[in-house]
Simulated assay, not measured.
Amino acid sequence: MLSAEGVRRARHHGESLPEAGYVLTGPDRRHVETAIAMGYAVDEMVPWPSGYLTGVVEHHDQWRWERPFERYADLLESSRSLRGVAQTHLAHWLRAVGRVDRGGMALVVSSGGSIEPVLVAAAPDGDHAGWGPALQHLQGATLNFDGDTCVSVTIRR
């Protein structure tokens, strides 16, 4: 459950974002609560798998890593299970993008540990070092696509 402060922050953050043509959330109640507090109706909630995998990525590891996006790039190469999770999420993201008009926005609300590896999977040749630290609450990224190909990633803090 979001706290009153979390609702206030989500509401404030949502005021700076454009209208979304499609809103997709992860399976946690707080994902849906965040989207609603931001001012968006949720179009779909998906029970996707966690990005935390025992022996690969433990809960909140990404916040302890000095270069989390580079670390995820390495892990995506070496871990079939993490690669599978990231591809599952990415397929949902692409489906959401496919539901908006050209130039429109799809909004995905998820959690840390699930967002970072998908960003790397979406842009395997991206500037992972330049993306900085792991994402915190109400942080994310803007991805631009040409069909199913991610052509740019801008980290939003």
Rank of each mutant, 00 (worst) to 15 (best):
G104N: 12
A134M: 04
D74G: 14
G112F: 07
P68A: 03
H89F: 10
Q62S: 06
G126D: 07
D127N: 11
V56P: 04
P124L: 07
F69E: 03
V100F: 06
P68V: 07
A91K: 10
V57N: 13
V120N: 07
G113E: 00
S111D: 12
D125N: 12
E116V: 04
F69Q: 01
R64K: 15
M105G: 04
A134Y: 05
R102T: 15
L135K: 03
L119R: 01
R83L: 10
V109G: 06
A122W: 00
H59Y: 15
A121V: 01
E58P: 03
S81T: 13
D74L: 04
G84S: 15
P117R: 13
G104F: 07
G130E: 07
A73P: 00
A73T: 00
V85F: 15
W65I: 13
F69T: 06
R99G: 02
D127Y: 08
G98A: 14
G130A: 06
G130F: 00
S79Q: 08
L82G: 14
G112I: 06
H59P: 00
W65E: 15
A91S: 15
R80Q: 14
S78A: 14
S110R: 02
L94V: 06
R99V: 02
P124C: 09
S78Q: 12
L75T: 08
M105E: 03
G130R: 06
V108C: 02
